[in-house]
Design a protein around this nucleic acid. Structure first.
Lengths: 123, 123
DNA sequence: TGAACATATGAATATGTGTTCATGTATATA
DNA sequence: TATATACATGAACACATATTCATATGTTCA
């Protein structure tokens, strides 16, 4: 009968090499990596990416997005809130309407790069 | 007493404009946007982004990652599986060890762009 | 060939989160 | 000033998913 291996730490030679410490040192702070994860997480949801794809084309108000996505107004407002909080979209008020746009060039670039990666992996 | 407004469709002038249909037409397919969301979702998790940050520096085996992240081996293997399935990392086997690397330049670029965006928004 | 090691994986659990429903707030207009 | 419209939001619920535990698979080596 096999004994249970214990994984407190890897004891192979690869893990005892010096480069482990160097990698740890050069790693961005956990705080920064958490922010980065939270940033990407916002793009990682179907409804939000649909909203962003629409806003990629032009500024739109909430009722436009309701019409374009064919979804509940509340659902869209909730997701817009997430996008606002993450500073991925901007908004401006005009009368009863609120108009949204993508925040900056980084957002366009990320969407471009993501799509490019997807398309390349299809082949 | 107020009546309940009904949001079957926006009836303001903005939603009845022609550009709504044009935007719908130019939107990538829902299938593609779902794939894009799933792609970004993989980056949107703390443990996975930590793994990717480590692999950004060099090829590493699983036990290296266990050591670097200070986490359960099982947790890391589960996340590596997600990264593999999404074709964000590659792997090669060498004896008992399995070595992982980032899949391609897109992955490096996305991590760069994400970090750049975060840092800019800090100021 | 058996023991130790490196990694993977299924099940269970806990936690996170997207949508809906109900309702609140602000603006325009009759 | 009352009503309709545009949008936001809190609560509840359903569903997704990250981690842990236990264990399986595959490799090396004595």
């Amino acid at each position: 009968m096999k004994k249970q291996p214990i994984y407190d730490a890897c004891i192979s030679k690869c893990a005892t090499n010096d480069y482990i410490d160097q990698i740890k040192e050069h790693l961005p702070s956990d705080q920064l990596l958490l922010e980065l994860a939270n940033f990407f997480k916002v793009f990682g949801e179907h409804t939000r990416i649909r909203i962003l794809s629409a806003l990629y084309q032009r500024e739109l108000c909430v009722c436009d997005l309701v019409e374009i996505l064919g979804m509940n107004q509340s659902a869209i407002s909730h997701q817009l809130r997430v996008l606002r909080t993450s500073k991925i979209v901007r908004y401006r008020k005009e009368g009863k309407n609120v108009y949204y746009t993508l925040d900056d060039e980084h957002v366009y670039k990320l969407l471009d790069d993501g799509l490019e990666h997807i398309k390349e992996n299809k082949q």
